[in-house]
Amino acid sequence: MLKINNLQASIEEKEILKGINLDIKPGEIHAIMGPNGSGKSTLASVLAGRSDYEVTGGTLEFMGKDLLELSPEDRAKEGLFLAFQYPVEIPGVSTTNFIKSAVNEKRKYLGLEPLDAAQFLRNMKEKMKLVEIDQSLLSRSLNEGFSGGEKKRNEIFQMAMLEPKLAILDETDSGLDIDALRIVANGVNQLRTKDNSFLVVTHYQRLLDYIVPDFVHVLYKGRIVRSGTKELAKELEVKGYDFIKAEVDQELA
C-alpha cells in the first residue's frame, strides 16, 4: 500500500530525514517510535504533503501512485489521512460543513454522487458513536475552544467519516488522559479492517497497549535504526531510548 524508499527531506536546508525505508501492506498497523527530534512528525508531514518540507531524495509510492506528484488534497482523496498532532482551530468554519465538503470533494474525485443531507447525517450519527463525540461539538467552529481530548477525538471522527486506506496518527496520544486515550484507541480499532492500514507515530509505548501494532520501528536521527514487533516497544518502555541511542551512536562512530 505504501512504499517508502530512501526518503530524504529537509526543512530550511536542514536535513531531517536521511533515508527512510518502509513498506506497509493492507491491513497492517505499523508504529513509528523515537526520541524527540528524531524526525517522526516530519515523516508524517511529508507523507501528507506539507510544503514546508522539501523532499530531496527517494520515492513515495501509495497504491501504485507517486505521492510526491500529488497535492495534499489529492493525497487525501486517494485515501491518505493524517490525524494532526496539533489540530488547527479555525473560527467561523463549522465542523459539520467542513466535514461534509471534505467527504463530498472526495466522493466527486472518486466519481461518486455527493451524499445528500439525510445520508450524510445518518453516516455522521453512526460515526459519532464510535468516538463518543457530541453533536454540540460538531455544530461549533472547527476545533475552536475544543479541549485537547476533544480535538483528538474530532480527528478520529474525521477519519471515520473519510474512510481512508492509510491513516497516519501523529502523536494522537500526546496530551490525552487515559480515558480519552481509550476512546480514541477504541475508535481506531473499530475502523480497522483487513484492507486499511495505520501508521501510528508515538513517543510512548502506552498507546500501543490499546492499538496493537504488527510492526514497530524506531526512528533516530532521521533513519529507521531498529524494526521489530510489539516486543520492541515493550523493550523501549523498560530501557528508554538511551540504550538505542548509545548503540546507534556507537555503530555510526
Binding site: 506539507r50 497535492s71 495534499p72 488534497e73 489540530p87 488547527v88 479555525i90 467542513f98 465538503s101 471534505a102
Partner: peptide, 16 residues
C-alpha cells in the same frame, strides 16, 4: 497551517 489542515482533508486549495 489552517490552509494545510483543510487541504489534508481533501479540500482543494481554492476551496480551502
Amino acid at each position: 497551517d489552517a490552509l494545510f489542515y483543510l487541504r489534508a482533508r481533501g479540500i482543494s486549495a481554492e476551496n480551502a
